[in-house]
Design a protein around this nucleic acid. Structure first.
Lengths: 238, 238
DNA sequence: GAAAACAAGATTGGTTACAGAATTGTTGCC
DNA sequence: GGCAACAATTCTGTAACCAATCTTGTTTTC
């Protein structure tokens, strides 16, 4: 308890409490990491493409050391490969790795819908169910893949959000950023969009019923189906 | 009094040992990352402890830029937190996060034993089953936790190896390096070692029978049991 | 005597410069 | 004409340096 009485400020006192403590949340390096992640995921940087340090430092106007730190982080995530004294290249994914990814994704996506079903009232899935049984059907019929993928992203985002598990979310992100490239190739395979839609509707119906176990089982079945499709057309997409 | 004294000796030549080392395998930074990971997992660096850049660069004889790159990678993994202008500290894990980790670990460990059971001949699990029904029982009775954990690590390593899925292995590692700290606290909880041993024997028996589904279900039940134990004694271990 | 104000030290963040290695282009030889 | 050795350029890896900020210790004032 300060026994101070009637203290005179005596000075403007530079009220710089904490103006911009940490800039805008993340460090500048964090932003660079996000941009490169997105660029790799969107295939703007093809697998095997060389990532020059000076090139990126000039493009983003950041020092080369920051590019280097970003490379270190991306290497840990498995998105790039660094060869000593030869630079960094975008990681190429071999088919075996893709199948391993799908085996892992199966259980993670299953857990995601299970937790989501348990955590939120079952009525909250009605709008997504309406979306998938209505507009999404037409998107598939008209081969409007962009709209279809947008709806799919909604389902994905809502599920992760409802699951409320940041650890699970991070792992699904880690997988998603590696397979996003493939989605554009899988979706155009004959009959895949239709089957995927049917399976998603089944999952959503289970979630709408509040049946978490069924939702998990159906989601896992959906992942196995996607993997099987991928295997059937392996020579065309991988 | 600013004693603007003589400048730093500036290290005349001091040619560092010829780094012909950086050719095979990983970069020197990769090694530093591994060492720090292990140090954090083994609790040699307590949560909240400060990690000095110059301190580590001197200890390992690596340039400070490499320490920073390692920090960037470890931050991506969630093992440390970097506060602008204040350095890096070992990440502290809050209870909610631990439970999220266990929920995620449940499905991953389940998938691991399922794949392991499917991939290798069931007879290959006999030695582990003998270990768990024989010596491990005595370790528990004698409270020889070191020997117990060694056997547990064997089970873990063999399962991951047999599963043959590097993606899954990486995610389990990511989880393991965060929870290893807790294992030493859980294992000493009353009755936990006994129950964990019983559950592991049940899992191994299922694997010995070649029953992958049962092994997965039992392993998941084991994880839920561990989580429940953690919740019961939350105030003591977290 | 206590709290605020001030100053000095220490640490991190970011920039520049230099050495080593690899790729590439050139030239000479077979 | 092709191949090999060599030189030049480019790029990575490392080091040193400067600036900004936080921490700590001291002083001043009420």
């Amino acid at each position: 308890m300060p026994k101070k009485s009637a203290r005179k400020p005596l000075k403007p006192k530079a009220p710089v409490v904490r103006p911009e403590r940490a800039r805008h949340g993340r460090n500048r390096t964090g932003h660079l990491i996000d941009v490169l992640r997105e660029r790799i995921a969107k295939q703007e940087a093809a697998p095997g493409a060389k990532l020059g340090e000076v090139e990126l430092s000039l493009e983003f106007g950041v020092p080369r050391t920051q590019v280097r730190e970003a490379f270190s982080a991306l290497e840990q995530r498995g998105l790039i490969e660094r060869i000593p004294n030869r630079g960094a290249i975008v990681a190429r994914l071999d088919p075996a790795h893709v199948f391993h990814i799908y085996d892992t994704r199966e259980v993670l996506e299953g857990a995601c819908v299970r937790l989501a079903t348990l955590n939120v009232p079952k009525e909250s899935w009605q709008d997504l169910l309406d979306l998938f049984t209505g507009p999404m059907q037409r998107y598939v019929e008209k081969n409007d893949f962009d709209a279809f993928l947008t709806g799919y992203a909604q389902f994905r985002q809502r599920s992760i959000e409802a699951a409320g598990n940041p650890v699970l979310a991070q792992m699904l992100d880690s997988i998603y950023e590696k397979t996003q490239v493939l989605i554009y190739r899988i979706i155009i395979l004959p009959g895949r969009a239709q089957q995927g839609l049917r399976e998603h509707i089944a999952v959503l119906e289970a979630m709408r019923r509040g049946d978490a176990d069924a939702a998990e089982a159906l989601r896992r079945e959906n992942m196995r189906s996607a993997k099987a499709c991928l295997r059937n057309f392996q020579k065309y997409v991988l």
